[in-house]
């Protein structure tokens, strides 16, 4: 990162007001993070720490109550296909076929078919969806739906890809296959990716850099450069001694954060589920 990063979050604070419960939640406080162009960064943290809020700010669904969020030097505007988003639940439109889902943004923007057709075809190949173009969404498996969702986000050639625990709902085997597919696809595309997860191994396998978040209110407490060269093979990486060491050290940080007294909410309601998501028996 010699030039100025593509994404800059500077001293960001995000408060949510809950009028009915008469309390205010501070989701993020003093969060700063930069992501360089072409970088793959994982945002890792205990549940409820505001990981997804960071993505919401970058997508334009939410706006910071304080601080600065810029992409390519410009403040984030309303949501747009130049920031591709993939959610945990497949948010494909069930009334459209696979191909129509993938080309949704292009057709909405009135782009010519000659432009998006070949691109869609390429993505369909890449995501292993060939032959399923005209399938209805409900005919696809969970993994295929997520692949279609990634293709749908990717077709607009976004500046960055925001992924919110995209493989969290998949079974272990499908999950690994999806992670490998994502890495292989990114070898060809060099997209900038900000990937939210609570899975340490996933973060180590996928990213160039891991930003570990604190418990609520969320901020970055540690940044770890992942030293593994690409292309990566899962079985080789997990076998490295440094993999276990990194995992242990990150886990220690997360536990420390989870055990820290929570003072995020000006009101009641404990956020005590953090400890449960990182059991000591790891």
């Amino acid at each position: 990162m010699t030039t100025s990063p593509l994404i800059v979050l500077e001293n960001v604070e995000k408060r949510f007001e809950d009028r009915r419960a008469r309390r205010e939640t501070i989701a993020l406080d003093g969060l700063s993070l930069g992501v360089g162009e072409g970088e793959f960064v994982c945002l890792l943290g205990p549940s409820g720490c505001g990981k997804s809020t960071v993505l919401d700010l970058l997508a334009g669904f939410e706006h910071p109550t304080r601080g600065r969020v810029t992409i390519d030097g410009k403040p984030v505007g309303r949501p747009s296909p130049d920031r591709g988003i993939v959610f945990q639940e497949a948010t494909l439109f069930p009334w459209l076929s696979v191909i129509d889902n993938i080309t949704f943004a292009s057709r909405l923007a009135g782009r010519p078919a000659s432009e998006y057709r070949p691109r869609a075809q390429e993505l369909i190949e890449m995501m292993g969806l060939r032959g399923f173009e005209h399938y209805a969404v409900y005919e696809l498996s969970g993994g295929m739906r997520q692949r279609a969702a990634i293709a749908r986000a990717w077709i607009s050639q976004p500046l960055l890809l925001l992924m919110d625990e995209p493989f969290g709902a998949l079974d272990a085997q499908t999950r690994l296959a999806m992670q490998e597919l994502l890495l292989a696809a990114r070898e060809q595309r060099r997209s900038t990716v900000l990937f939210v997860t609570h899975d340490i191994e996933e973060a180590l396998f996928l990213s160039d850099r891991i930003a570990v978040m604190s418990g609520r209110p969320g901020r970055i407490v540690e940044e770890i450069i992942v030293p593994y060269p690409r292309p990566r093979a899962y079985q080789e990486i997990v076998a490295m001694p440094s993999f276990g060491e990194l995992k242990r050290s990150i886990l220690a940080t997360l536990r420390e954060q989870a055990a820290r007294p929570q003072h995020a909410t000006t009101g009641s309601l404990p956020h005590g589920d953090d400890l449960r998501s990182y059991p000591r028996s790891h």
């Binding site: 997508a59 334009g60 669904f61 309303r78 949501p79 747009s80 296909p81 920031r83 591709g84 988003i85 959610f87 639940e89 948010t91 439109f93 949704f104 943004a105 909405l108 923007a109 749908r152 986000a153 607009s156």
Partner: peptide, 19 residues
């Protein structure tokens, strides 16, 4: 989440409603 998906794909206002 579905509305957000639509907005992220560039559907706003009437287009969001219609599509």
């Amino acid at each position: 989440q579905r509305i957000r998906a639509g907005r992220a794909l560039g559907a706003h206002g009437l287009a969001l409603f219609r599509y």
